[in-house]
Design a binder for these strands. Structure first.
Lengths: 331, 331
DNA sequence: TTGAAAGCGCTAACAA
DNA sequence: TTGTTAGCGCTTTCAA
């Protein structure tokens, strides 16, 4: 077995600086009662020896100053936006940098693993966990949930896009252009999707076309989606509202392959306004929910929690529609 | 400050099972000299109490059984493939699950942070670090580098796609269709790109069209790329070989926006064969370098290292070309 | 086959 | 203002 290279410890720094090792710890923690001279001396030694604190040891006693971020997968570029928000929010705080963590194991395992690694708090994105599981996790560690709206959280905070609003924005936009037969491609698990569907349904009702509505739900891993999209397109809807941009891109692909023109034969709208929407070959109308803002807010909430807040807080952000060619029926 | 919920420790398990706490530790580590009866009893208590070992404390003494994965960013879907490979490789080993970590801080900081968190080893993907920095890191912690081919590594292992081959495959394919003026859009930092460029150059020479070659390098964050692509397209090359699919998609977008037909006016080839290539609106010819295989191999190497191997190893994988409409000039 | 005891590197009372 | 002293939860000798 490989012998790990010996690290510089707080003890060696203390010896080098000619002080007690707890003095070094104090400097590290910005604790009270350290003279400038001592601080200076210690800092010099730290730099000289290239010391850096051992997080594991640190976490064993107090806080580790590391927060964990759990993503369902890495493939959705929208998640990257959220992470950007988290990163920049952390930069302005006295806290250590983020460590974003994604994995393939089950979310419960991952969350547990993070607790095991002494993370101070966790941000869970688009989790498929039940309300009960979330409540349980929240009782064990400070927790912020993104993209999931449980009825009445008691142990954790949430940050969400106003998904009803998303659905209504889309339907209003399409209805204004005269569309009636508007279908929706949704997703099975996260509760945020239920909200988006509700917005869609409300919109359809306001539009007086509820009768023409169809919601099709796909399982998370967009496998069986293919046949689903084909089947949906065969019904010749005037427009399709897709729960995320990736699915919308695929719908565009299928429509084209079947000789349908976009938006003349079928208008398509996505959600998240990810970078690819702007590409000429997609030119996809999409709902922008600012992942960066979401990440920013989630981090803010988590830090407040770590600092002592006990009551739960819920944040709801407003989306906006970015219109492009894919839904501009009458140009 | 929030008081953390008390965790179940090894001590409580010991009490519950009526054994010494070191006996529990032995069961946990599958150490020698534990009777089946004792093991049984301890395991029952572990399940009953829902105990799970504290990684930080464990890492303080021995191995943490956690390995870190550093990605340059989250936006390239090819990186997700690599992560898939790493995950599945770890599933078959006696080692703990992976924790993939991505961040915005500098790579050196991240690597350091991982060492601080007691990770046993690190996989660095598409790192921009210098050979010296890599050598230094490799001396401190078991290290595997992906997508970077330093001349003669002495402290770490590498797994790479045969990037020269990638370049040659593309040029051969285009040359066979009569193309001469083939441009390449490359990237500044990682050395893997230098290899890919070399393959391109060699291909152009074999094709007798070295004279017509142009390599344009973009900085990592595809910002200034836009104007670059425009400028490149204005020279009206017959084909453009892009260092990755994302850039190829953007090139397609610009070409279309400028009224160029693909592939009649300009053929386009990408690299990585990511999922979007197959979409009808892209139908992008691309080099497949199997991220999953790369991740798998990297993990294998890292585990070998952790188990004691001292000599460095280099693995080179062969790419293959997946032809689609974007480069089928004569259909 | 089991258990006792000594740390790993650090934080956070407490004493000096 | 500084240093002393307990641990945090675990691994790993070494005795019993």
């Amino acid at each position: 077995m490989k012998t790990k290279t010996k690290r510089v410890t707080i003890l060696e720094v203390a010896k080098d600086a000619g002080v007690s090792f707890s003095a070094v710890s104090k400097v590290l923690r910005n604790a009270y009662g350290v003279s400038d001279a001592l601080r200076e001396r210690v800092n010099t030694s730290i730099k000289k020896l290239g010391y850096s604190p051992n997080m594991a040891a640190r976490g064993l006693r107090g806080r580790s100053f590391v927060i964990g971020v759990v993503f369902p997968d890495m493939r959705n570029p929208f998640l990257a936006d959220i992470f950007t928000g988290i990163s920049s929010a952390l930069q302005r705080t006295p806290y250590q940098a983020v460590r974003g963590i994604a994995g393939h194991s089950s979310e419960t395992d991952l969350t547990q693993a993070m607790i095991d690694m002494q993370m101070d708090g966790i941000i869970l994105v688009s989790s498929g966990l039940s309300h009960e599981q979330l409540t349980d996790s929240g009782a064990r560690i400070p927790l912020v949930i993104i993209g999931n709206r449980p009825p009445a959280p008691t142990t954790f905070d949430t940050v969400n896009n106003n998904d009803e609003q998303s659905g209504r924005l889309v339907i209003a936009h399409l209805a204004k252009q005269g569309a009636k037969r508007i279908a929706m491609l949704s997703l099975e698990s996260p509760t945020a999707m239920r909200m988006r569907e509700r917005g869609y349904t409300m919109g359809m009702e306001e539009n007086g076309s509820a009768h023409f509505g169809t919601i099709m739900r796909a399982p998370k891993l967009s496998r069986g989606l293919y046949s689903g999209i084909e089947a949906l397109l065969e019904k010749r809807p005037e427009a399709v509202f897709c729960w995320c941009d990736e699915v919308a891109f695929e719908t565009i692909s299928h429509a084209r392959a079947n000789g349908l023109r976009i938006p003349e034969d079928v208008a398509i709208v996505g959600h998240d306004n990810t970078a690819y929407c702007a590409l000429d070959q997609n030119s996809l109308t999409s709902v922008d929910q600012s992942g960066e803002q979401i990440g920013l807010n989630a981090t803010k909430l988590l830090i407040e929690r770590l600092e002592g807040r006990r009551e739960c807080e819920q944040i709801l952000l407003q989306p906006r529609l970015v219109v492009r060619r894919s839904s501009t029926i009458h140009a």
